[in-house]
């Protein structure tokens, strides 16, 4: 491997933290879904790095599947969010707070 595996972990960790921060900080539903996408990519990086580090192909197959699932997740998520937008006219998660 061109760089020790621990570095890959560090980068992925930072990226993961960024994803979490984006999910939590932004007041826009779509940005939350985006944040989750970032977290998924961070996991993919670790998988690819591990595959290389252990030189076994499992990691690679895992990433391919993650990409597919991420796509479905976004589609389902956006479907609900667009539906909510058409219904309430806003993306702000604050006003989706009726249930007591």
């Amino acid at each position: 491997m061109i760089v020790p595996f621990s570095n890959v972990l560090v980068v992925a960790g930072i990226l993961f933290a960024l994803g979490v921060f984006c999910t939590v900080a932004r007041r826009n539903l779509i940005m939350i879904v985006l944040g989750i996408e970032i977290m998924l990519n961070a996991a993919s990086i670790v998988f690819v790095g591990a595959a290389l580090h252990l030189d076994s192909l499992d990691g690679q197959t895992f990433v391919l599947f993650i990409l597919a699932v991420a796509a479905t997740e976004v589609s389902v998520g956006l479907a609900i969010i667009v539906y909510a937008f058409r219904r309430t006219g806003s993306f702000d998660p604050a006003n989706f707070n009726l249930l007591r």
């Binding site: 972990l9 977290m39 996991a43 670790v46 998988f47 591990a50």
Partner: peptide, 8 residues
Amino acid sequence: FGMALLYS
């Protein structure tokens, strides 16, 4: 992310 760590 956890699974990735475990796998790695």
